[in-house]
Design a protein around this nucleic acid. Structure first.
Lengths: 83, 83
DNA sequence: GGCAATTATGGTTTTTCGGGCATAAACATA
DNA sequence: TATGTTTATGCCCGAAAAACCATAATTGCC
């Protein structure tokens, strides 16, 4: 099930969870994605200045997809959406 | 149904389609989102340097949601996914 | 507690975005 | 074709990201 990321902080949390699910450290993900560990740290914390290119680099390394949908009418979060 | 945006260009196309669906010009969307028309043009064309903040500004104005999912095993595009 | 690994943060430099303004190119349509 | 609208592109410049390096803070484990 796809997760909504309505803020950079939520996006960061989702990335962090995906990374941990794969058993990767930030440094390992950095090597895989071509970014730097510090950069990944800042993204995971929730940095709204992150560039699309950086996001896509992480998504490719983590086997994630970015989806676009019309805004859900019911914004009530599922159990899994609380970070 | 959510659309996959695997590249900045695909993301741009989705934004453009959402904008047109709402009957907005780039200039009108610029006013709604706080960005500039030139900026939106570059994003729609597919600009990988776009910042998350800009993306979220557009998404809010267009009533779109950003979703994250584990990469689909079957990448065959639906009819609607061909731009 | 103590140690190693991991993550977060600070400073500096380089690179690039995005605002701002102008204008060309594309598009519609009378 | 001509005119008006919409979109794309070029340049300059200030602001900010990201590389880079160092190191502090945190976490996990013995």
């Amino acid at each position: 099930m796809a997760q909504i990321a309505r803020t950079p902080a939520q996006m960061g949390s989702l990335i962090q969870r995906a990374r941990r699910r794969k058993g990767l450290t930030q440094t390992e993900l950095a090597h895989l994605s071509g970014l730097r560990q510090e950069h990944i740290s800042r993204i995971e914390v929730g940095h709204d200045g992150t560039k699309l290119a950086s996001l896509y680099a992480l998504f490719a390394a983590l086997d994630l997809d970015l989806l676009v949908d019309i805004r859900a009418r019911d914004p009530s979060p599922g159990i899994d959406d609380i970070f």
